[in-house]
């Protein structure tokens, strides 16, 4: 049994009204603990709906979502499920509850009913993990987008979940902020063994994951390891491959022997090797 499982899940927004939209159609996928997963697709492909289905913010109309064996449809399990899977959303401004940063990071542990000392320990640890400890007594509105998202991540970390979902968490950030978040996420997966599920439309971010799921129009069209990123089916659905892959293709067409690459760094290595 996998850590997170989607079993034939469907979900419709505004069901039974004239504006009904079937966002997710018969989706099945499995995520193991420790995985670094990317879920890619256009806006409107259903990927953000998947994020909310994972921790029971939305309940499937058909099929089942289970986290560590517990079903999200079971109201009594929701608390446990949310202890295990945290979500960092897209808008840095709309996730903070408190006027002081350390109070905001404490929000999660406070909801868990932990002792004040334990909460303090977790808040300090979480803020240090995202390199925002020195800002702990400050207010959110003076921070940059990247900093706010780091605080949001700290807020989720403080709950000590086994998995973290990043729902397009970098799409409203500038390049500096994006890099900050990607570095932290990478570190969490490698060092803390946290299961990371990155929902994104940036193919170069997807290239950093080990397992990739591609969605279009509510359906899963591809899943697998990084090789998925160069599958021709992507182009058929209007998705690009990562730029490094495209350039590699161009070089192969020109007769060069370039191995499997997905990031600019890997490509540079291969080019040097081949010359």
């Amino acid at each position: 049994m996998s850590f997170i499982e989607f079993d034939n899940v469907s979900y419709t927004y505004a069901a039974q009204t004239p504006n009904a939209v079937k966002a997710v159609k018969n989706l099945s996928l499995k995520i193991e603990e420790g995985d670094f997963v990317a879920l890619v697709g256009h806006n409107g492909s259903g990927k953000s709906t998947v994020a909310k289905l994972i921790n029971g913010l939305l309940i499937p109309e058909h099929g089942k979502v289970t986290v560590d064996g517990m079903s999200t449809a079971d109201k009594k399990s929701l608390f446990e499920i949310r202890k295990n899977v945290g979500i960092v959303f897209q808008n840095p401004d709309n996730q903070m509850v408190a006027t002081i940063i350390e109070d905001d990071v404490a929000f999660g542990p406070e909801n868990l009913g932990l002792s004040p000392d334990e909460i303090r320990k977790r808040v300090d640890w979480a803020l240090k993990s995202v390199d925002m400890y020195e800002y702990r007594e400050g207010a959110p509105f003076r921070l940059s987008g990247g900093q706010k998202q780091r605080v949001a991540i700290a807020g989720v970390l403080a709950i000590k979940p086994r998995a973290m979902v990043l729902d397009e968490s970098t799409s409203m950030l500038d390049p500096v902020g994006k890099k900050e978040i990607m570095d932290i996420v990478h570190k969490l997966n490698k060092e803390e063994k946290m299961t990371v599920i990155m929902i994104t439309h940036f193919m170069d971010e997807a290239a950093l994951a080990d397992k990739i799921f591609v969605m279009d129009d509510g359906e899963l069209i591809l899943s697998g390891a990084k090789k998925v990123l160069t599958d021709p089916l992507l182009a058929a659905h209007g998705l690009d491959m990562p730029p490094a892959c495209r350039i590699a293709e161009g070089l192969r067409k020109g007769g060069m022997n370039i191995g499997e690459v997905y990031t600019p760094e890997e490509l540079a290595e291969e080019i040097c090797r081949s010359l």
Binding site: N55, L57, R82, Q95, F107, N111, A152, V156
Partner: peptide, 9 residues
Amino acid sequence: YAMDSRCYR
């Protein structure tokens, strides 16, 4: 959504 996700009840 964010509050619920952080186990608010």
